[in-house]
Design a protein around this nucleic acid. Structure first.
Lengths: 199, 199, 199, 199
DNA sequence: CATGAATGAGGCTTCATTCAT
DNA sequence: GATGAATGAAGCCTCATTCAT
């Protein structure tokens, strides 16, 4: 008797394991056997769910994004004022918790791989399109309420998102000069400067 | 009679080839044989100069940075006004020429690898320290001349550099929404906002 | 369903092949590929059972000893008189059959390797301890029955065993002056001299 | 101006280095580069004197034997009584000094290699022929003086030499049960038993 | 005579993938 | 559905040998 739920669970379990192994060992060092070990199963089973390693990795990247988005759903659906929401959005990307760090690491690994994999480039583009829409939406909302100064909301969004990515990289690499605290300061300053009357 | 210059040349030749191959095939797909082919020698020769592949890659990353810095030496030594120099600095990082694109690709590959290699983290940190110093210096200079508004110059530098990194990633990944032109706009806007009286 | 017996069989099969190849090609010339060919499998399979070549070789040496000991089990368990058993023991080491020659060759290769491998030294020591015990036991038995003359049984055992090794080397090397027949004579003479009343 | 003595010196120097490296690293681990390092020269120079590695190794084995024989010349030419000379001969083979240990190690490595190299088998055979002649001569001399009991002198020589080889192997392998002291005892006992009237 | 940079064939080892159970 | 033994292609690295200087 086929039990679809079992399959779905197994799939998620394997993808989660894959993300963890990518974050720990690094993309290039991931072996199917590692994933199997981490997921508590066998290489045979991994290949039962994913034909090739490439497919597995790709699915893991998508999984990483989906989980990431879901963790922000509360913020995105919030009714708080735009400034507050923007700050919360930024803070949710600070690599503080283990979960966030893992997600960032996976994402960083993706960039290197995506340079040579059109499929991953599309994934990246759609994800960033999503984020850009969300952030630009919040800014536009703030401008409508006369909270934020004028200027291209999409340009501001691009700047903020890029800044977060660039800073996160340095934090992830354990830079002695770029800590989570400094990352927060830099981002908050940028958001602050968007206000019509800085607090 | 040993000719030291030959050795140094050969080394540089191999490192250049390594950077090119990393940029083309991606870090994880680099084979020593590829490097040898590109450099016009044999795998034996590559290993004559670099004991292991890891050592080769690490040296290539350092080479990539050294070359990158040298290409900016003119800007850094320039006597132009701070605003002008900051714009030139930003523009020099736009992934337009083949050389710049290659350097960016190598750098992007480094991030993924550095997550798991302390030696590369140190390299990254020292390089970003250098850039931070340079940019903060320019900003401080502009503030002294009353061109730039007040505020922590290091914070501004961190924001600008991170923004460049984050935007470059998206451009390199061939994002349909983030082109070189948009990247330039976003960066220039940020620099513009630093001016006391925006042009 | 895993079949443990299959694994054990495969292991023994590979070890047997390894001993044969060592005896034929010599220790230093053994290639994992040779072993695989001889065992009728692939190099991948050899490495599935033995992580490294060193481990494989070591296990082969142990295998060689275990098999060797088992071939003497009848003699060791025999109830014949001590003189008879000692002669049989000596004769069992004459490099006459293919099996014995192979075992001797493997053992000779081990000596060279063991000079630089503590693990093999321990193996050698435990094996010779075993032989010394057995031979000394037979001699002590003979002395108790007044067949053999007095004197340190362990000393006699050491002399006899060393003599067998030294002679076997010369025979194995195809010496024109040391044939199996002469080896037998020399050993039998020594045993003869142990008798209270030489026959 | 060619200086033959320089060449001869260099040759000896390289051969000595080769023996030392064989004794230290083991035959299979010897690299031409190691020999060059030890001899304080370059691989190019080693190959200037020896066309191939095989030739180098073979010459080193011969060198090892020649040196070994020369160290015994005093004993062989001695006018002492046969018993005394036999004991001295045995003692000269006890692996006590560094020089003797090195020579034994090289010799042990030779056995393994000679199994598969006819040229080395011939070398071994001629060397053992020499030793057999010497020892048998001493024994025959002792018998003529009524010191040693009757019996085939060549047989006794073979037994003694083989015993020395077999015991030396165990000592070299660092056996806990076979020390230099025990080796001496065993050999001396055998020689003692050759006397007509044991002391 | 001597050097050591360069070569490239060859061997060990890894690991994604398959398939019989 | 799941397993893991088996495979073999592929890659890193070693090292004897050559040759221009």
């Amino acid at each position: 008797m086929p039990r679809p739920s079992v399959e779905a669970q197994r799939r998620a379990q394997i993808l989660q394991a894959t993300c963890e192994v990518i974050a720990e060992r690094g993309f290039r060092a991931v072996r199917v056997a590692d994933v199997a070990d981490r997921a508590g199963t066998s290489t045979g089973t991994v290949h039962y769910y994913f034909d090739t390693k490439r497919e597995l990795i790709h699915a893991a990247f998508e999984h990483n994004f989906a989980e990431s988005l879901q963790r922000r759903s509360a913020i995105l659906a919030s009714a708080a004022d735009p400034h507050q929401r923007l700050v919360e959005f930024v803070d949710s990307y600070l690599p503080t918790s283990q979960t966030t760090v893992t997600a960032w690491r996976v994402w960083t690994e993706l960039w290197g791989e995506a340079l040579h994999t059109p499929g991953l480039q599309e994934l990246n583009d759609s994800v960033y399109g999503e984020w850009r829409r969300v952030v630009a939406g919040i800014i536009r909302d703030g401008q409508a309420r006369n909270l934020f100064r004028t200027g291209d909301p999409v340009g501001y969004a691009n700047a903020l998102i890029a800044m977060i990515d660039g800073l996160a990289i340095q934090v992830l690499l354990g830079s002695k000069n770029m800590t989570v605290a400094r990352m927060r300061e830099v981002c908050h300053s940028y958001v602050q400067d968007l206000l019509v009357v800085p607090a």
